[in-house]
Design a protein around this nucleic acid. Sequence first.
DNA 1: GCTGACGTACGACAAGTGACGTAGACGTCA
DNA 2: TGACGTCTACGTCACTTGTCGTACGTCAGC
Lengths: 225, 225
Amino acid sequence: MSAEPETSTIGVLVVDDHAVVRRGVVAYLEALDNVEVVGEAGNGREALECLESLKVRGQPLPRVALMDLMMPKMDGVEATAEIAKRFPSVRVVILTSFGEVERIHAALEHGAAGYLLKDAGPSDVAAAIYAAANDDVFLDAAVARRLVQKMRAPQRGVAGLTSRERDVLVLIAEGRSNREIAAKLVISERTARTHVSNLLGKLGLRSRTQAVLAAMREGLVDPPT
Amino acid sequence: MSAEPETSTIGVLVVDDHAVVRRGVVAYLEALDNVEVVGEAGNGREALECLESLKVRGQPLPRVALMDLMMPKMDGVEATAEIAKRFPSVRVVILTSFGEVERIHAALEHGAAGYLLKDAGPSDVAAAIYAAANDDVFLDAAVARRLVQKMRAPQRGVAGLTSRERDVLVLIAEGRSNREIAAKLVISERTARTHVSNLLGKLGLRSRTQAVLAAMREGLVDPPT
DNA sequence: GCTGACGTACGACAAGTGACGTAGACGTCA
DNA sequence: TGACGTCTACGTCACTTGTCGTACGTCAGC
């Protein structure tokens, strides 16, 4: 959709814990003649090891890493942050099935240069790779829409919560009681209850049970294993 | 691992809402010379429409449908049941990222002839297709392990619940209060509380908030959008 | 026919939860 | 400096939730 293909070959590292998905992505990329898959990794840690080993062997680093978010060992957000810090020349493009605002936000905040959903077609993936290689940012249309929605309604959703309320919400979503939350955050149970009450009000919820679902819906926490 | 390849070509229908996953699966299958991909579908409804249209045109139905579980419009379990009923010659093999006991159970119960996880390699997919084509059942090793674990400990997990308790648990996991659960099930609120109390005890949980997480962990309900 | 599991229901009680209001300390920003 | 937002904390009240014990009808299995 934008960004003319670079003249030189773009190296790509594919990171996903599902072999099938890696295979599909690689198939997409093989169709592009100025893109070369330089490696695959099954989780964030492997991705970093792969980059590290390329570096010590003096081999060229990939220009782009195409990365899933939910992975064992090290998830995509963490890996993205780590890559941005240790391998700043590598652009990270997220490719995931989750389109939750919080996750998108977190990924972009940690240096992601693109965000695709897994129902994206080959052309979207190509566009995202080219954009990233050119230091542009590519966002899936659906993703962009949600981001804009979020910015238009800044007071709705978890975005309207204070950071403390968000801490509390995360703990609620882990199944903790108010007492446990208080202990965890080193505050009194009364205060914990104040936060719970406030966040329920802001989110328009009637119980902590619903808060668990809301936290997951917004991508604030992962659904249980 | 088992099941010698059939002599004739095996037609396969690939059903997944993620284009990238379909592409990966198709790439796997293209490497097998006695397997032919006869169609792709993005959800359960499309899959049924596809089979229907092949039928009315008098074209041969696929021998195997490779199907994701979580899809929009119609999910995999429902589609599997429908296919088993209306197109009994088609064997359904599940290919999904969720390895929750309840889901596995539901899929097999509704007529699935195989269950793979998405981190399966090409050889697993091939083995599952061949097995299904030969009226055998192929289970991913990890999946089989969980099934066996489940059968060995029949009283633990949601399997130890009565069907009524399971109904209640599902409603809890939707964020309903005891009063709402009672209304929904047309029982008194006291009775609803009895069920809640009993199921919490059986699952070793301390609150309905934890029950929400347990229900998802076991695959009794889907995580929210 | 008896036993046991299940679903239903009640009462009473304790604990947990959520909605009020109030208030001080601290930081930021105009 | 003053206004504002945030985190902290307390008290109170009403409601919800969870536990325990009890009970009865039904249905399947021995």
